[in-house]
Design a protein around this nucleic acid. Structure first.
Lengths: 212, 212
DNA sequence: TTCTTTTACTAAACACTGTTCATAACTCTT
DNA sequence: AAGAGTTATGAACAGTGTTTAGTAAAAGAA
């Protein structure tokens, strides 16, 4: 009587296939370039079929949103080996930038759009676990830095918010094509990657000076 | 023989009317909610008419983009009265946040979308003057702070990029609805404005510690 | 004034988008 | 094999940006 189980499995497989195709399209194109008909064609099904597995487009986007956080946490995982919290903090920033520049489409959907956020509002908080994990990892690292004399007297949660704001700002300006148009960078032949590296290095230096 | 002149004036008037209506719609609704047919209805003309005055939607968006920078600079102008550069720097941040929270639709189109940026690529650099002015004002202020002992040894341009990244990150996270979903802020009843104020205050404190 | 040319405008269409629904086509149970 | 239940889809609706062909009005020339 494993019929229900198989059906459930088939259903899950179909969902996965849809998400996989959608993810692929996100890597190739941008947020606005992706469409239901697009995904439907990729999985060789009718557009209407997708609505049997997902309520609407936002639900697909939200699912990819969650996958994105898992991917981000995978970027963070190997950083646990850094014993020195401040070293770990700096590596976290680099890993975040690497994630954003390597997956701009996914990053855009995770952090730069309000559409998936609206869907988050009316679903269980439990679904935010992966996102929370990433931020908690940051807060913990900041707290550990403080126990070694860094960032004295500053609230770890607020300070983490500040760090995240900076890194996100840098990454999102790059993805939204603004970085190349800033005065001083526009006319010179400095690559966008160099600007990001330089700006992040400046931030790191500033953080370093906040010791003691 | 003032016929050509009058025609040119009429044309400019029509352009202004289109932009005015578009701006109004941006204040009321969001970026994705605005449409050519929408604007056309507001000015009581056919949608096709708009294409006689603007090449495409992106050109409209780009025009609003420029208006937005003028508005931002208007927020910055009164700050010249602050003689102390560090005080001025802090006030600039507040003014930027004020501008972003009061004009979220305009901010979104100015800094969070790549569509208008693509149009910028193939138009004269001259059109970036207003944007450059705002950033130069920041760089100058940072340089003046350095001459008073702040941010020693850090490159003013990179440091300005860092400051802008932070502020933009904070504002964009708020506009994209992400700020309310961060662990620690989600369950508590802290308002989004409070989170922004607190985070910015933390940033200010950090900057203050970078003296000497 | 009359005729011609230029300009300003728009209705209709094209190719898209997300989404819904009746209908058809399978699958499974009896 | 017949009926019930599930699954897939074609067609449609309302919306989007944009183009084109055609019309009506204004301007210039006779």
């Amino acid at each position: 009587m494993g019929v229900k189980e198989r059906k459930e499995r088939d259903r899950q497989e179909m969902r996965d296939q849809i998400l996989k195709s959608a993810h692929q399209l996100f890597l190739e194109k941008g947020f606005d370039q992706i469409s239901i008909r697009n995904i439907a064609e990729a999985i060789e099904y009718s557009p209407a079929t997708i609505y049997l597995y997902f309520k609407d487009k936002n639900e697909i986007v939200h699912a990819l949103h969650q996958d994105g956080f898992k991917l981000l946490n995978q970027h963070f995982q190997p950083l646990a080996k850094f014993e020195q919290p401040f070293e770990r903090l700096k590596e976290m920033g680099k890993a975040y930038i690497k994630f954003a520049t390597e997956n701009p489409g996914v990053y855009e959907l995770m952090f730069m759009r309000s559409e998936p956020m609206e869907h988050v509002s009316d679903c269980l908080d439990e679904e935010w676990r992966e996102g929370d994990r990433a931020f908690e990892f940051l807060v913990e690292t900041v707290a550990q830095c403080q126990s070694q004399g860094y960032f004295k007297g500053l609230h770890p949660h607020s300070f983490s918010m500040m760090i995240w704001s900076f890194i996100h700002g840098l990454c999102s300006l790059r993805i939204s094509q603004h970085l190349g148009h800033v005065k001083g960078a526009r006319e010179s032949k400095i690559s966008l990657d160099d600007i990001m590296t330089t700006t992040y290095a400046t931030f790191s230096q500033a953080l370093e000076k906040l010791k003691g």
